[in-house]
Amino acid sequence: MMELVCPAGTPAALRAAVEAGAHAVYCGFADETNARNFPGLNFTPEDMAEAVTFAHARGAKVLVAINTFPRAGAEPLWHRALANAEAAGADAVILADIGLLAHAADRHPALRRHLSVQAAAANPDAINLYASAFGVRRVVLPRVLTVQEIAAINREIDVETEVFVFGGLCVMAEGRCSLSSYATGKSPNMNGVCSPASHVAYAEEGRDLAARLGGFTIHRTPKGAPAPYPTLCKGCFTSDGQTGHIFEDPVSLDATQLIPELAKAGVSALKIEGRQRSRAYVAQVVRAFRAAVEAQAAGRPMPETMLARLTEGQKATTGAYAKTWR
């Protein structure tokens, strides 16, 4: 069966994910070492050890994301996170930075290393480089590839691949985007945040609600209409008289129906985005995807997705997996 890798922003969400059928849960420490460094989220080293005990007792794995790029002069914070993950009994760490991968391979050789989507390894050459230089065993593929390209990659590499199937959707190569820090000073790579709430301001202006990020207007919606969160790349902008969602509509990813094709393409694990989501959301999504991977393993058709209402009324897309998206 394909491995289902599920998000946990809190110990409660981790328990919910495991009880709902997650084969593996990914989570991070409550500091800038992880790419979902949001207030009120994430794990202390003690939480992590307890989470591993809980998950292992139920046959599930815990993958610790240490996937920001260590700040110059502050690498010991990231090195401690690695040591804490190993001490907690984590099944793997998810890393993006070359220097941190080198340190992990050198100092924690027995700790399994996965390559984060933030490393943007988008072709077999990059993946084989990370595998040979740092002993990476699994790669989370960037969301820039079609299913066909994923199949071609799997034919040329010896490590496992993991792909995103549900949740938020980056339209840029991840780990290579500084749009957020251009507008706010805070970035995924350096601070583990994108379009942070601390820099969002709403203003009622005439009949509109304007949503701004770092002072830049991301969208305007009529008062009373649902207003999506002002994520920079999903904003409504103008160019030479044209107005629209120039980068991407406010959509989210749902690749449920592609699971059989992804299995045929040689993908080992399916990842659900959403460490910032509630325990109830995580439980619902995990249950639905566990049913889907079981159906795939049994050769049954994919269940009709029940998840539309979980995407906050947003449209769903299969994103870059379909070539026409480009």
């Binding site: 790029f69 260590p70 700040r71 110059a72 002069g73 502050a74 690498e75 993006a96 930075d97 070359i98 220097g99 941190l100 080198a102 340190h103 390894a121 988008a122 072709n123 050459d125 990059a126 084989n128 480089l129 780990g175 290579r176 790579n189 350096m190």
Partner: peptide
């Protein structure tokens, strides 16, 4: 990924689109 084509020790430059954020890297 360009590195896979460059033999160990052969000189190359690193451009601004490679993530060099710290001394280890």
């Amino acid at each position: 990924s360009a590195l896979i084509h460059i033999p160990e020790g052969q000189a190359f430059w690193v451009g601004p689109l490679v993530n060099v954020y710290n001394e280890g890297t």
